[in-house]
Amino acid sequence: MHDMFQSAGLVAYWRPVDGVRHGLSPVELPYPGQERETLCGTTVIVVKTTAIDWLSPTCAACWDEARDRRDAAAREAGAQ
């Protein structure tokens, strides 16, 4: 398979909290009741979600950070 189709790896877990989908560090799988810091620096309590919760808008700051992490991982993988 061509390298351009290979994933640079997981950069975030996404979870809806208080009406916004935030990105969380992929180091540990998030679970309900857990306090986590989002990619935008907000501290949230992960909640059990419904299908409707996933329709919430994405936090722009988390999206930007996730994209930056993805691009950095791709650059690093390309340098090897």
Rank of each mutant, 00 (worst) to 15 (best):
S7I: 01
T50A: 11
A79M: 12
V11R: 05
L55W: 02
L55H: 07
Q6N: 08
D68H: 08
H22C: 03
P32E: 09
D64Y: 05
S56K: 05
A8R: 10
A61V: 07
D68K: 12
H22Y: 12
A61T: 13
Q34H: 06
P26L: 00
D64T: 15
V11W: 01
C40G: 03
E35T: 11
T43A: 12
A8V: 13
L10V: 07
Y13V: 00
R70T: 07
D3I: 13
P57H: 11
S56Q: 06
G9W: 01
M4A: 15
Q80W: 15
W14G: 10
T38M: 05
A66V: 02
W63S: 15
D68C: 03
E65T: 13
D3T: 13
V11D: 05
H22L: 06
D64R: 13
V47L: 10
P16V: 05
I52F: 10
V20R: 09
E35I: 10
Q34I: 02
T43E: 12
F5I: 08
T58M: 08
G78D: 15
F5H: 09
H22V: 06
P30G: 12
Q34A: 09
G23C: 07
G9Q: 02
L39P: 01
M1Y: 12
S56Y: 01
E65A: 11
E28Q: 14
P16M: 05
R69N: 05
W54F: 09
A74N: 04
T50M: 06
W14P: 00
Y13M: 02
L29P: 03
L24D: 01
K48Y: 11
D64Q: 14
M4W: 15
E76V: 11
P57K: 13
E76W: 13
V11Q: 07
V46Y: 00
D71A: 13
A60W: 05
R75H: 08
R69I: 05
V11Y: 00
A74C: 10
V20P: 00
A72K: 15
T50E: 10
H2G: 04
A66S: 14
S7N: 05
E65R: 09
P16L: 01
I52R: 15
H22S: 04
S56D: 11
Q34S: 05
G78M: 14
L55S: 06
D64W: 06
R21A: 07
G9F: 03
G23V: 03
R75D: 09
M1C: 09
A66R: 01
T58C: 12
A72V: 08
T58W: 00
W14N: 06
E37C: 10
S56G: 06
E28F: 09
I45W: 02
V44L: 09
L10Q: 10
E37I: 09
T43S: 12
M4H: 15
D18S: 11
G41M: 01
Q34P: 04
V11F: 03
W54P: 03
L24M: 03
Y31S: 10
G41A: 05
G33C: 03
P57D: 10
T43L: 12
T50Q: 10
G41V: 02
R69Y: 03
T43V: 13
A60Y: 10
M1E: 13
V44E: 02
R69Q: 04
R70V: 06
E76G: 08
V46Q: 03
A77L: 14
I52G: 08
W54S: 09
M4E: 15
G23Q: 02
V20S: 04
R15W: 01
R70I: 03
A51S: 13
A60T: 14
P32M: 04
